[in-house]
């Protein structure tokens, strides 16, 4: 598999020579009762400081597993990183000691989870949970940490932060809880934030507010952001580049606007066509036929071939490499030219 050409760096002018995070040929598998599930099969992507990478894919496409591997919170066992490198500031995190990695977590790389209600500890006050970051990583006293927690809550625009700092997660609304998750990730001003479906559990109106807040804070701190989502609408507004994942591989990667205009992979095309549109009101909604593959039995050749309208014999035998399609664009399709063309 070819490594993606880093011309996408042109989108973020201030980007240093080495990317902030560089995932190289990552393979992750899970041992299950039904056999070995190959969740991630050679993922390559990179993020620069101040840049937003959106990772798009269905459930089970390996987008969250990749994030967990970066974060070092993969359940091992049953999970296992079989090969690959995860370079952070040019250093491979997979060869670091447990203690070295722990010091990066929260401090240099932070994560925002999907469902803040279950991701926050129900029996500890939000002030305690926010303050814990400062107490553990910076050795602050309880009192100082609480002041910092209030400051953080103000920063993510939670009203009456001072009065609410001792409240518990269940006493906040969904949007406010997600703001607390964001505040927690921002606490130590990390270089990279991984947001795993940060708005999926929220109302549509609140989704926009939370996304805007996240984008604004990211600009302010010039952090790198990996936005994991299956919501194409969210992606268009905030992402710089997109990586589309299918069955543990990146099938297409592109700067954000080009992918909407001219997808170079039949899967991406299918995804875009299945968005409901006002001008097609009354017509049947397009859906990609079939189901995502069982990860213990990924089809040979291109994993998408059983569902692909363009599949030929070669798709069933040869795994397509990520072809360079344009500047900063790649498509893992044997027929990318045809896909782009029509």
């Amino acid at each position: 598999m070819t490594v993606i050409d880093e011309t996408a760096g042109a989108l973020a002018p201030a980007a240093p020579a080495a990317p902030l995070l560089d995932v190289r040929d990552l393979h992750v598998e899970f041992r299950t009762r039904d056999g070995v599930a190959k969740a991630v099969n050679g993922v390559n992507y990179s993020v620069n400081a101040g840049e937003t990478l959106a990772v798009l894919g269905e459930s089970g496409s390996g987008k969250s597993v990749t994030a967990q591997a970066i974060m070092g919170i993969l359940d091992m066992p049953p999970g296992r990183i079989t090969s690959g490198e995860i370079l952070f500031h040019g250093k491979d995190m997979l060869t670091m000691s447990g203690e070295e990695r722990r010091k990066i977590r929260g401090r240099k790389i932070a994560m925002i989870f999907q469902d803040a209600l279950s991701a926050l500890n129900p029996v500890l006050s939000v002030g305690y949970q926010l303050g814990e970051m400062f107490r553990v990583h910076q050795g602050m006293s309880r009192k100082q940490a609480k002041l910092k927690a209030i400051e953080l809550m103000d920063r993510v625009r939670i009203p009456a932060a001072k009065e609410r700092v001792n409240d518990y997660p269940h006493q906040f609304s969904g949007g406010m809880r997600q703001r607390i998750m964001i505040a927690m990730a921002l606490a130590l001003e990390p270089d990279l934030i991984i947001a795993d479906e940060p708005t999926t559990a929220l109302d549509v109106t609140v989704q926009a507010q939370v996304m805007d807040l996240l984008a604004e804070l990211q600009r302010e701190f010039t952090m790198g952001l990996i936005l994991i989502t299956h919501d194409l609408g969210v992606v268009a507004d905030v992402a710089d580049k997109i990586a589309v994942m299918y069955a543990g591989r990146i099938v297409e990667t592109a700067p954000v606007h080009e992918i909407y205009r001219r997808p170079a992979h039949p899967y991406t095309k299918g995804l875009l066509q299945s968005i409901p549109r006002l001008d097609r009101k009354g017509q049947e909604l397009y859906a990609i036929k079939g189901l995502p593959p069982n990860l213990t039995r990924i089809p040979s050749g291109c994993a998408f071939n059983p569902r692909c309208p363009m599949a030929q014999d070669v798709c069933r035998t040869d795994v397509p490499v990520l072809h360079q399609v344009g500047p900063g664009r790649g498509s893992a399709c044997h027929f990318w030219k045809e896909t782009l063309g029509d």
Binding site: I73, R102, F113
Partner: peptide, 19 residues
């Protein structure tokens, strides 16, 4: 989930378990 969060926060294992 909140235990995964605690690990992701970079808390030492001892703290994750006890607190």
């Amino acid at each position: 989930d909140y235990l995964r969060t605690a690990v992701a926060k970079g808390l030492p294992r001892r703290r994750v378990v006890t607190v």
